[in-house]
């Protein structure tokens, strides 16, 4: 496998020392993560799996720029109520079954319509990007939602480094598929590997982020370690996890859920209370706050574009959102 060096560094990419130091902290946190120990016997695995849930602390350069009025979902709920079918289809399966998964070392292949392509080590991809915390609403297509403080950086900042050409109309993402570490891959629930995609303007939008952590700590395996996408105005399944490939394409890429049930899961999948899922209403959602919270009063109205209409509605001006759901 050819490991290519990142593109020549432009002056705009030269990292300030303060950021560089933070990068060291990120790498140290990743390296010290007990995940690195996974895979040494059953006991060690489950221990590592449990310890991995704790996540290693990350140094965050900026906080408070993106906040949500509602209180965040608690850490335990956000890390033990997950849809990550590669680890099983029950909500608690990913936390239970992801102990064997090794998010390190990691590399991502950049392909398609860009001047710079190749395979890059995760550290090299992350290097120039200061990490920031953004608290986003997360709305699942299943009509539940959470509020999660992500740690990451704008996807667009990363994509620009590869200098996409004028042919790059879409960005396609692929999740890793390791049958030995991901027991859910044994079942043909989806056409593996998991794939997702965005239109290039959606990918470049400042709200769209790549994340390496949540709650100030590295992503646990069940949340998509080591690198996942977060697009807060779209249904959660668009937020592809454990990304190994990013490709710039001219045509709209095939996406996993759209392929499995095209009448239920559109390519756009923008949160839209006015367009129901064929089998359930999307008008309201059940906010998951976490243990210790009451049973009552968790249902809230779903907002157009998940509350981010002001920032993103213009991307879809003139489009029939009933047709392009």
């Amino acid at each position: 496998m050819l490991i290519r060096r990142p593109p020549d560094i432009r002056s705009s990419e030269i990292t300030a020392e303060s950021v560089y130091r933070r990068r060291r902290a990120v790498l140290k946190a990743l390296a010290l993560s007990p995940l690195a120990l996974a895979g040494c016997g059953r006991g060690a695995e489950s221990q590592a799996g449990q310890a991995a849930n704790a996540g290693a602390p990350l140094e965050v350069a900026r906080r408070g720029a993106y906040v949500v009025g509602d209180p965040p979902t608690d850490y335990d709920a956000a890390t033990h109520y997950n849809n990550y079918y590669e680890f099983g289809t029950a909500k608690d399966d990913p936390a239970k079954n992801s102990g064997r998964f090794r998010p390190q070392p990691w590399s991502v292949e950049i392909a398609g319509e860009a001047e710079v392509t190749g395979r890059f080590a995760l550290e090299d991809l992350l290097r120039p990007h200061p990490l920031e915390e953004r608290v986003y609403r997360m709305r699942c297509v299943e009509a539940w939602s959470m509020v999660i403080p992500w740690v990451g950086f704008p996807l667009g900042d990363l994509l620009k480094r590869f200098r996409p050409t004028s042919k790059a109309k879409y960005v396609a993402f692929t999740t890793v598929a390791r049958p030995d570490e991901m027991p859910g891959l044994a079942y043909p629930v989806l056409d593996w590997p998991y794939r997702e995609g965005l239109r290039i303007d959606e990918a470049m939008h400042p709200l769209t982020i790549l994340t390496v952590g949540l709650f100030g700590r590295t992503l646990p395996n069940q949340n998509g370690a080591p690198l996942r996408l977060v697009v807060p105005w779209k249904y959660g399944f668009k937020g592809i996890k454990s990304i190994v490939r990013i490709a710039f394409t001219e045509r709209q890429p095939v996406t996993a859920w759209n392929r499995a049930a095209p009448d239920e899961y559109g390519f756009y999948a923008n949160v839209n209370p006015a367009v129901d899922h064929p089998r359930w209403s999307q008008a309201t959602e059940r906010r998951i706050t976490g243990a210790g919270f009451g049973l009552f009063g968790n249902r809230i109205a779903t907002l157009p574009f998940n509350g981010y209409a002001e920032q993103v509605a213009s991307l879809y001006a003139g489009m029939d959102l009933r047709r392009y759901y």
Binding site: Y81, K91, R286, I288, L295
Partner: peptide, 15 residues
């Protein structure tokens, strides 16, 4: 289980 809060992150779905 409901009164003890041991229905997990989404107690309503469990009920």
């Amino acid at each position: 289980d409901a009164t003890r809060g041991s229905l997990g992150p989404d107690p309503v779905a469990q009920l």
